[in-house]
């Protein structure tokens, strides 16, 4: 019997910006970003809907772009800017995207809402940078990666259109 070598996995240090604040953590290399966010950072607003990159409920912003946190290794967050739903609103109030979601009646059960909000925020940032106003079709396309069973998407599309194109 050969002696089995015990495999020791070294934790990796990551430093990143979490919701506006610099954070340093030691993490397992195999850790998924969603588990890191929910279990280790205790930010439960990021929702586990499918854990296979299909539903978008766990979307977060990495350097301003929406990413499915269930398909992303946590160690890759090193040096990046991570925003979760908790980071959108602050003591001064809601982010305009959240406000638009509420006012347009886009929140029903709410389980998809964090991810939806992040996808809309990501579009808002992108189109602002490109100085473009997206069409309704482009907005729908941008929301394709987020599933919702309650709303039929109409109010979510309206909320997105209103906040991105600042109409109404």
């Amino acid at each position: 019997m050969s002696k089995k070598k015990k495999l020791v996995v070294q934790n990796v240090e990551v430093t990143f910006i979490l919701n506006g604040k610099k954070v340093t953590k030691q993490i397992r290399p195999s850790l998924l970003l969603i588990d890191f966010i929910r279990d280790e950072l205790s930010l439960a607003g990021t929702k586990p809907g499918c854990l296979e990159g299909e539903c978008g409920a766990c979307s977060v912003l990495i350097d301003g772009a929406a990413v499915n946190s269930c398909m992303y290794l946590a160690i890759n967050i090193h040096g990046k800017n991570l925003t979760t739903i908790e980071g959108l609103s602050d003591v001064n109030g809601l982010d305009p995207v959240q406000d638009s979601m509420i006012k347009h009646g886009a929140v029903q059960c709410g389980f998809c809402s964090s991810g939806m909000t992040m996808s809309i925020k990501s579009m808002q940032i992108k189109y602002k940078k490109d100085k473009k106003k997206p069409s309704k079709e482009e907005i729908k396309k941008g929301l394709e990666g987020n599933l919702c069973r309650c709303t039929g998407y109409v109010k979510i599309i309206e909320a997105a259109e209103a906040v991105i194109n600042k109409v109404k």
């Binding site: 439960a44 929702k47 739903i85 809601l94 509420i102 009646g105």
Partner: peptide
């Protein structure tokens, strides 16, 4: 009148406690 849901705020800020939480 079109009053937004009174529980939308906690759901849109990640504060709502679902079974997963």
């Amino acid at each position: 009148t079109p009053i937004p849901k009174i529980d939308a705020g906690i759901r849109i800020t990640g504060k709502a406690v679902y079974g997963q939480d």
